[in-house]
Amino acid sequence: MSLTTDDVNQIAYLARLGIDHQDTSSYTQNLSDMLELVAQMQAVNTENIEPMAHPLDNIQRLRPDIITETNQRDAFQTIAPQVEDKLYLVPKVID
């Protein structure tokens, strides 16, 4: 499986990941190599094998519906890049 630089640019956009223009071809090469490595899996017959999503063969534990969290806005917002009127700010979003 080999990717094109267009593919890589498209994936990078999906991941909102800035990639320097001059690096695109090396990423393309890296990704193609990785996909080639991964392609070894296709040779194995996995029919009727249940996918294993998690190593813990267990069920989800449930939490009682009790408020445990207190307001920590000020502490959390001291590490935020841009805050005004207690809101996190991002460039204007147009719907």
Binding site: A15, L17, I19, Y27, L31, M34, L35, V38
Partner: peptide, 13 residues
């Protein structure tokens, strides 16, 4: 990190 995010994004797409 970027390589792995890209591969992961691709594999799930």
């Amino acid at each position: 990190v970027k390589r792995r995010i890209l591969v992961g994004t691709y594999a799930l797409s």
